[in-house]
Amino acid sequence: MTIRVVVADDQELVRAGFSMILSAQPDMEVVAEAGDGAAAIEAVRRYAPDVVLLDIRMPGVDGIEAARVICAESATKVVMLTTFDQDDYVHDALHAGASGFLLKDVRRADLVHAVRVVVEGDALLAPSVARRLVADYTRRKPAAVGADGPLPDGRDRLAVLTAREHETLVLLGRGLSNGEIAARLVVSEHTVKTHVGNVLSKLGLRDRVQAVICAYETGLIAPGDV
């Protein structure tokens, strides 16, 4: 399967660089480039790509607003790219529906990996971004973390998990991918996907990002473990 990608950034050289890296992959095709959020939205509507890379700061419609529209209108996965490693951008981007958040100084291999990961249905955060996200949510202390409303405080909520699901949540909280979790637990990736799905379902969590937050809020993971 060829992964179709749209690259949106207001700097032409940055767009060209990302496009060149992704186009060089045998399983990827950059179907369009965009210089602002409005153009990115139109490109997604026209080409229905699997993934769109969105810069946060663009003229007119910025990346956050473009992500909201794209995620509301389509099944296209959104990966946010920015030079600004700041809490509010992470918080806003993820709430807009983004599946990934990477800094623009990301290594070539990590950029390619990010695209593949989100296409497979996983959420992806750079380790530094994950730390900031956890700190941000801890500071804000939202009333509701679960998709179905407030969840009880403390580890009692984790009692519904099996021992292996508990281990999976710990590794999710540390930011490991399905492949890394599989290697750590010596099981198949298919088995890991089942465990992850069970963890999210039992705890009423929307995605892996909320699983990271849950692991911290319950004290399962301590600051510095990511």
Results as ranks from 00 to 15, higher is better:
133 L>I: 08
220 L>I: 14
155 R>K: 13
49 P>D: 09
144 A>C: 09
117 V>I: 10
74 S>I: 00
111 L>H: 04
141 K>I: 06
176 L>A: 05
36 D>W: 13
77 K>N: 12
142 P>R: 14
187 V>M: 14
52 V>K: 05
146 G>S: 11
82 T>G: 11
107 R>H: 12
34 A>W: 06
223 P>E: 11
41 I>Y: 01
6 V>H: 01
190 H>V: 13
111 L>M: 12
73 E>F: 01
180 E>V: 12
142 P>Q: 11
140 R>K: 12
138 T>E: 14
205 L>F: 09
142 P>W: 08
117 V>E: 15
62 D>A: 10
15 R>W: 15
2 T>C: 01
101 F>N: 03
75 A>V: 03
1 M>R: 08
38 A>D: 07
137 Y>F: 10
133 L>Y: 09
58 M>I: 05
187 V>P: 08
114 A>T: 15
186 V>F: 02
220 L>T: 10
198 N>Q: 14
127 P>M: 10
54 L>K: 06
186 V>H: 13
17 G>D: 07
41 I>N: 01
33 E>W: 00
109 A>E: 15
27 D>F: 11
177 S>F: 12
162 T>A: 09
83 T>F: 11
167 E>H: 15
52 V>Y: 02
131 R>N: 08
137 Y>V: 14
200 L>I: 15
156 D>P: 07
120 E>H: 06
207 D>M: 09
18 F>I: 01
112 V>L: 06
24 A>M: 08
204 G>D: 12
148 D>G: 10
92 D>C: 05
128 S>I: 01
218 T>F: 02
48 A>W: 12
193 K>F: 01
34 A>S: 08
112 V>E: 04
226 V>Q: 11
163 A>Q: 13
217 E>I: 04
144 A>E: 14
183 A>F: 03
45 R>T: 00
199 V>D: 06
43 A>D: 00
212 V>N: 06
17 G>N: 09
147 A>I: 11
142 P>H: 07
182 A>M: 05
181 I>M: 04
34 A>E: 13
131 R>M: 04
71 C>Q: 09
160 V>Y: 05
138 T>S: 11
48 A>S: 13
66 A>N: 07
72 A>D: 11
225 D>V: 05
13 L>A: 11
129 V>Q: 02
193 K>Q: 15
132 R>I: 06
106 V>T: 11
194 T>D: 13
128 S>A: 09
198 N>L: 12
184 R>H: 14
35 G>R: 15
222 A>H: 12
77 K>V: 03
50 D>L: 02
58 M>R: 00
143 A>H: 12
161 L>S: 09
63 G>N: 04
148 D>Q: 12
159 A>M: 10
139 R>Y: 04
205 L>D: 09
103 L>V: 15
14 V>Y: 03
8 A>R: 07
73 E>S: 03
223 P>L: 11
218 T>D: 02
9 D>K: 03
69 V>M: 07
56 I>A: 05
182 A>E: 06
33 E>D: 13
15 R>M: 13
61 V>F: 01
159 A>N: 10
68 R>I: 08
128 S>C: 00
135 A>I: 04
154 G>N: 09
